[in-house]
Design a protein around this nucleic acid. Structure first.
Length: 558
DNA sequence: CGAGAGCCAT
C-alpha cells in the first residue's frame, strides 16, 4: 500500500516545483476550465504567461477560441503553433464547421498528415449538420475503421433528412450501441411522429438516462399523451431532473392547451433551484397565450426581465404573440421595438398579430418595412399578409399579394396559401372561383384546402360543392367531425332536413363525435366558461341583453 | 485539448 502511495505523492511535488506557475499540466487544465466558462481573456493571460507550453496547451486555447465564437483567432493560433498533433487538426476542423465553413474544414481534413477515427467523425458530423448527406455517406463508407460514434452520427444524418428506413436499418446493423445511439433513434421516431416505434425502442433500451427519457417525454407530449409524459417525468430522480426535462414537460402542457399545469410546473422548476431559460419562458408565454390571460402574461413578461432573457429574439417573438392573443393591442408595437435584431419570425409574428385583429393597414405597414431591414419575406410572411386580407375582407388585395408573392418575391405557394385564398373567396360568395383555384393548383389539395372550400359553401349554400368538399375531406380523414357538422349545417340552412338526418346517422355509424366547443374569459382573477346553449352563468340574462345590443349595432354597421 | 443525443418563437 505504502509503496504505491509514495511515488504518486513524490511525482506531484516534483511536478508542482518545476515552475512558479505550477506545471504545464495544471495550467492546461485551468485554461480548459476558463475556456469552458467563456473567460477567454483570462485563459489568454494564463496562456501568455506560461513559461513552457505543450501541444495540449495550444489545443486547449484554440478550442476555447472557436467554442466562444472567435474562429479567426483560433485559426491564427493554429497556423502559428510550433507543433501540431491529430487533436489540433481535429479541433480546427470542428471549429471551421462551427463557424459555418465546411469548405475550409474539408480542406484541413484533406491536407492533415494523419487521421484518426475522430477526424473522420468530425467531418461526417459536419457534413450532416450542413445537410450534405451524400458527402457524409461517402466519408462513412470510405473510412478505414468505424466506431459507435460514426454509426450514431450517420443514423442521425439519415433521420434528419427523413430517411427513416435507412436510419433504422443502420441502427439495427450497428455492431454495438450505447445510450446515445438509442436516444438518436428514439428522437428520430418522435420527430417523424412514429410514436409506437419510439415507445417500443424506449422499452427495449437497456440503460436510460435523463436525455433518453426526455426524448421519450417529448414523444408522449407530441402525441398528446400528457399522462404518460408526466409519469416518465416523475420517474426521473430529483437530482437528475434538469432544465431540459422541465422544458420538455412545460412545452408539452403549453402545446396541449394545459396552460395552468405549465405554469404550475414553472413554479416547481424554480423551487427546484433550476433557472428558467429562453426555452422555458417561450413555452410559458405560449401557455399564457393559450389561456388568453393578460394577468399571467404580464407576470411572465416580468420574469423575462428578471431572468435577463429580454435580449433573446425567440422570447421577444413569444411576448408579441402573448400580447396579441391576450388582446392587448397597445403593447404589441412596443414589444416589437424592444427586440434588438428582429428576424423573419419576429416580422411574421407582428404581421400575424395585426392580421388576427383585422388591422390590414398595420399589417401592410410592417410588411413594407421588412425589406428595408434587409430581410427577405418567406412563405409565412405571405400567409400572415393573406390572413390580414382575410380578416379585413380585402378580396382584391389578397389576389394581388398572392400574385406578387409568386411572381415578384419568388416564394412558392403551399397548401396553406391556397386554403387562405379559398377562405377569402368563399366568404365573399365566390365559392365557384375558389373551386376553380383548387383545380388549377399545381399539387394535391390537403385537408385545410378542402375544409376552407366546405366552409365557404355555407355562405352561398352551394350544396353540390359542399358535398364534393366533404367527400374529399372524409377521403383524407374519415373521423373528421368538422366536415360532417359543417355539411349538416349547410343542409339545415338550405332546408334539406332529410339530408341532415342522413349525415347525423352517418356520423353515428362511423363513430364520429363532435366535442362541444367552449370559450372563456378572465375577469378579476376569476375564469368564466361559456358553452353553446348553456344558460348556467349567474349573469346570463344580462349577457343576453348585451348580445342583443351587439347584434343590432352590427346590423347598423353593415 | 478533438467526434454522436433531449427542450423554444410566426
Amino acid at each position: 500500500m505504502l509503496s504505491r502511495a509514495i511515488p504518486k505523492n513524490l511525482s506531484c511535488i516534483r511536478r508542482y516545483n518545476s515552475s512558479p506557475f505550477g506545471d504545464v499540466y495544471t495550467s492546461n487544465v485551468r485554461i480548459g476550465k476558463l475556456c469552458r466558462e467563456g473567460k477567454m481573456d483570462l485563459a489568454r493571460k494564463l496562456f501568455d504567461e506560461m513559461p513552457r507550453r505543450d501541444v495540449v496547451t495550444w489545443n486547449a486555447i484554440i478550442t476555447g477560441y472557436w467554442k466562444n465564437g472567435f474562429i479567426q483567432e483560433s485559426k491564427r493560433l493554429f497556423d502559428s503553433m510550433p507543433l501540431r498533433n491529430i487533436v489540433s487538426w481535429n479541433s480546427m476542423i470542428a471549429g471551421c464547421i462551427q463557424g459555418g465553413r465546411i469548405d475550409v474544414a474539408f480542406l484541413y481534413f484533406f491536407k492533415m498528415p494523419e487521421r484518426n477515427i475522430a477526424s473522420w467523425n468530425v467531418m461526417i458530423a459536419g457534413f450532416i449538420r450542413h445537410g450534405m448527406i451524400e458527402e457524409a455517406v461517402k466519408l462513412f463508407e470510405e473510412m478505414p475503421r468505424k466506431n459507435v460514434i460514426s454509426y450514431t452520427a450517420m443514423v442521425d444524418g439519415y433521420a434528419k433528412i427523413g430517411e427513416m428506413n435507412k436510419a433504422r436499418q443502420l441502427f439495427e446493423s450497428m455492431p454495438s450501441r450505447n445510450e446515445v445511439s438509442w436516444t438518436v433513434m428514439i428522437s428520430a421516431f418522435v420527430e417523424s411522429n412514429q410514436f409506437d416505434e419510439a415507445r417500443e425502442l424506449f422499452g427495449r433500451m437497456p440503460y436510460k438516462n435523463v436525455i433518453s427519457v426526455t426524448a421519450m417525454i417529448t414523444g408522449y407530449c407530441k402525441e398528446g399523451n400528457m399522462e404518460d409524459a408526466r409519469v416518465l417525468f416523475e420517474e426521473i430522480e430529483l437530482q437528475h431532473r434538469d432544465d431540459v426535462s422541465y422544458n420538455a414537460m412545460i412545452t408539452g402542457y403549453a402545446q396541449n392547451g394545459r396552460g395552468e399545469e405549465a405554469l404550475r410546473l414553472l413554479v416547481d422548476m424554480i423551487c427546484s433551484r433550476l433557472r428558467p431559460d429562453q426555452y422555458t419562458l417561450v413555452s410559458i408565454l405560449a401557455a399564457c397565450s393559450g389561456l388568453a390571460s393578460l394577468t399571467q402574461g404580464k407576470q411572465t413578461h416580468a420574469l423575462v426581465f428578471k431572468y435577463r432573457l429580454d435580449t433573446q429574439v425567440s422570447v421577444g417573438n413569444a411576448v408579441i404573440t402573448m400580447y396579441s392573443k391576450c388582446g392587448s393591442l397597445l403593447d404589441l408595437e412596443s414589444a416589437f421595438e424592444h427586440i434588438c435584431t428582429p428576424n423573419i419570425v419576429s416580422w411574421n409574428t407582428i404581421i400575424t398579430a395585426f392580421a388576427q385583429h383585422g388591422l390590414y393597414e398595420k399589417a401592410l405597414c410592417f410588411f413594407k418595412k421588412i425589406q428595408v431591414h434587409g430581410i427577405e419575406p418567406d412563405g409565412i410572411t405571405f400567409l400572415s399578409l393573406l390572413s390580414a386580407c382575410c380578416h379585413a375582407g380585402r378580396v382584391k388585395e389578397s389576389l394581388y399579394w398572392f400574385d406578387s408573392m409568386k411572381n415578384i418575391y419568388k416564394v412558392a405557394p403551399r397548401c396553406e396559401h391556397y386554403a387562405c385564398l379559398i377562405d377569402i373567396l368563399g366568404r365573399s360568395g365566390q365559392v365557384e372561383n375558389a373551386y376553380k383555384m383548387i383545380q388549377e393548383m399545381p399539387f394535391e389539395a390537403d385537408l385545410g384546402v378542402w375544409g376552407a372550400l366546405l366552409a365557404g359553401c355555407r355562405f352561398s349554400l352551394n350544396i353540390e360543392l359542399a358535398e364534393l368538399a366533404a367527400q374529399e375531406i372524409i377521403k383524407l380523414d374519415a373521423k373528421n367531425s368538422g366536415a360532417y357538422v359543417m355539411l349538416s349545417n349547410i343542409y339545415a340552412a338550405s332546408g334539406l332536413w332529410r339530408k341532415v338526418t342522413q349525415v347525423r346517422r352517418l356520423m353515428k355509424e362511423n363513430e364520429v363525435k363532435k366535442q362541444a366547443a367552449f370559450s372563456w374569459m378572465e375577469i378579476d382573477n376569476k375564469v368564466h366558461y361559456f358553452v353553446g346553449g348553456d344558460a348556467s352563468h349567474l349573469a346570463v340574462d344580462k349577457i343576453h341583453t348585451v348580445i342583443i345590443q351587439l347584434y343590432s349595432q352590427m346590423e347598423n354597421i353593415t
